[in-house]
Amino acid sequence: MKYTEITPGYIYVEERVITDEMVRKFADITGDDNPIHLDEDYASKSIFKSRIAHGILTLGLVSAVLGRKFPGPGTIYLKQDATFKRPIYIGERIRIRVEVLEKIEEKSRLLLSTEVLNEKGEKALVGEALVLFREEEVE
């Protein structure tokens, strides 16, 4: 999508499933091996009753949408405000929702609402992102 085609109110939605492999790879890459993410026995005794995904892994999936799908290649993350409201469980299908709140023409920036909803449609992550968007030139 070209910057000129983006308008406030535009919504992009994508669904993903949080897998055990994703969580384990994220833990390995970051070193965050908190047992709430990796050990079912430990997690079963927690307030969550089962393993949950890392919150930052979930936010990373928002980043992937911004950089690859919408607004897409050429996007530079400038700022993200995020609140984690509910856990995302291993095997859960999530919905990533990005909405254009404001278009800042003179700087090619977009203010975006960023949300991740769980399978029940409840907000698990809410926030706002500020991005610089310039389309990649294709030769």
Rank of each mutant, 00 (worst) to 15 (best):
A53W: 02
L78R: 14
P87R: 01
T58Y: 00
L110I: 12
P71H: 08
E119W: 01
G9N: 06
N118R: 05
L110Q: 11
V62N: 02
I11H: 07
Y3A: 07
E14A: 14
L78P: 10
P73N: 08
E21Q: 15
L78S: 12
V116P: 02
Y10R: 13
E106S: 14
L112I: 04
K123V: 15
I90R: 00
E15I: 08
T75K: 05
S50H: 10
R93T: 15
E14Y: 00
L78V: 12
K120F: 11
S113E: 12
A43Y: 10
E119K: 13
M22T: 01
K120S: 14
L101I: 10
P8C: 04
G60I: 06
G55P: 07
T75Y: 07
K79S: 12
I94G: 00
I18A: 03
D33E: 13
T58D: 04
E15D: 14
E119I: 06
R16C: 02
S108K: 15
E119P: 05
A129N: 11
D28R: 11
G72I: 03
R86E: 12
L61N: 04
A124I: 05
I88F: 01
P87H: 05
V98S: 04
L125M: 10
L101G: 02
I94T: 03
E137V: 15
E122P: 04
S108T: 10
V62W: 04
E105F: 09
N34Q: 06
K107W: 00
K2A: 08
S113F: 02
E92S: 09
Q80L: 13
I56E: 09
T58M: 09
F70M: 14
G91K: 07
V126F: 08
